[in-house]
Design a protein around this nucleic acid. Structure first.
Length: 424
RNA sequence: AGAGGAGUGGCAGAGUGGUCGAAUGCACUGGUCUUGAAAACCAGCGUACUGUAAGGUACCGGGGGUUCGAAUCCCUCCUCCUCUGCCA
């Protein structure tokens, strides 16, 4: 959620920024935001004044009563009726203006960082760097959806029976590879200074609003309506929400956490022929890293996170590239996002395996996540997160890139975690 | 799931309708004293909105209500504790 005070200070920056991410109604939205805020202030002032009068009278009534001056007290009581009625009306107006303001704020995405290029779609994303060599595969090489059947390690049909499409069953060495990756990612994160947590994977509405999934992406989350809980689409949600409503001490910053959770996504409307096999699932596993940072240090932290994620890909010996997302492809709450994509050699496709973002104060404003600096002033923190990493597409790339006539070679770093060197 | 009890500032804990944003203690911050520290003493010490400021307003788990006036009374939801039941 954007900060009104900040927009006021520099309206043009906000508007041009929002236009860069194709938020077409930017000018209109910002203008009505400011006008609603002015309305809010004016009504609140009137309401406060009415309440002040009423409070004053109430105090007098108390004094009169204790002095036994009943009649004067009764007179004063009558006078309060006017202010009460006024306050009731102002209160209602205030509530409706505040509601309108809130709803409007929910519809305005974050203002992108100046580095973010304008653009409409993923075609306008900027490739910043490419690393590693694309392997040349042997003649019998096939995409991972064939490999998983050949070696019987992931079973979509079985998942269909138990649940439905997009909920595969990992079997045998396939299941062990999953567990190995999760442990590897968590160990690496610990070594990099991230504090491991295991959060709930169902969240309440307040949490969903605070990190920006609600109300914007209501339809993308599974909703357990009986208890009004949502299944998390990413560990970002519960981990960041650990700090909802907190005022941290400056010296306790930064907060760095890593957590493994399954992730659930309905992916409504985004299914198609291009999402075969492991490329898109309704349930998948992911280790997420989250940082709560001082505003002055968040961009340094973002680089750090990006480098950390790349170190994982290097250790897994996967060819990858780093993209800077353009405005049009940027997530609703993000100020800047880098995507890491690995090359899946048999599909001959780049697959997004990680997304690392700085949300600046956008989430923190909804979270009411602040810190108190040495100057005793409280101000909003910056939140950041990144996938480190999401499993299915990493698995797809490992299977495809490492396939040989004799089976699939497990990357060296994973062998101790797996307990085997080949899937054959 | 049923019965009972409870939720107050960073923590502990008073406050059952009137001047209470809230006693007191601890913790914390600044000061006095001291070579330094401790102790003692003095002062300060929540958040948000609004205002140039003085100030005003709101907040005692969340929401709603009664009342001129609510931390205090009523309704409702949430959370915690105890007992019973159920269960990995």
């Amino acid at each position: 959620m954007l900060q009104i005070a900040q927009i006021k200070e520099n309206k043009e920056v906000a508007i041009s920024g929002l236009l860069r991410r194709n938020f077409k109604e930017a000018e209109k939205a910002i203008n009505s935001l400011l006008s609603l805020d002015d309305q809010r202030k004016a009504i609140q002032q009137k309401n406060d004044d009415a309440l002040a009068e009423a409070n004053q009278l109430s105090k007098q009534i108390g004094q009169l009563m204790s002095q036994g001056k009943k009649e004067e007290a009764e007179d004063a009581k009558k006078k309060t009726a006017v202010y009460k009625a006024e306050s009731k009306q102002f209160g209602e107006e205030l509530k409706s203006v505040e509601e309108e303001l809130q709803q409007l704020l929910y519809t305005i995405p974050n203002v992108p960082n100046p580095k973010v290029p304008a653009g409409n779609s993923d075609k306008d994303n900027k490739v910043l760097s490419t690393h590693g060599d694309v392997p040349s595969l042997y003649d019998g090489a096939t995409p991972h959806w064939d490999l998983i059947e050949k070696y019987d390690i992931i079973d979509f049909e079985l998942g269909n029976k138990i649940t439905g499409a997009g909920f595969p069953v990992y079997k045998g060495k396939g299941a062990k590879l999953q567990r190995a990756l999760v442990n590897f990612f968590l160990d690496e994160a610990t070594n990099a200074g991230y504090n491991e947590v295991q959060p709930p994977i169902l969240i309440n509405q307040a949490s969903g609003i605070a990190t920006g999934q609600l109300p914007d992406k209501e339809g993308q989350m599974y909703h357990a309506t009986e208890d009004d809980y949502y299944l998390i689409p990413t560990a970002e949600v519960p981990i960041t929400n650990m700090y909802r409503g907190e005022i941290l001490k400056e010296e306790d910053l930064p907060k760095k956490h890593a957590g493994f959770t399954p992730c659930f996504r309905r992916e409504a409307g985004s299914w198609g022929a291009h999402v075969r096999g492991l490329n898109r699932l309704h349930q998948f596993d992911k280790v997420e890293i989250v940082q709560i940072q001082h505003p002055d240090k968040s961009y340094k932290a973002l680089d750090e996170m990006s480098n950390y994620i790349q170190s994982l890909l290097k250790k897994l010996e996967l060819p990858y590239r780093v993209l800077l997302l353009c405005g049009g492809d940027l997530g609703f709450t993000s100020a800047i996002t880098y995507d890491m994509e690995v090359f899946s050699a048999a599909q001959k496709k780049w697959l997004e395996v990680s997304s690392v973002s700085n949300f600046e104060t956008y989430q923190a404003n909804r979270l009411k996540l602040r810190f108190k600096g040495v100057d005793k002033k409280t101000q909003l923190l910056h939140t950041l997160n990144g996938s480190a990493l999401a499993l299915p597409r990493i698995v797809a790339a490992i299977l495809e890139n490492n396939q040989t006539a004799n089976g699939i070679k497990i990357p060296k770093v994973l062998v101790p975690y797996c307990g085997f060197e080949m899937i054959s």
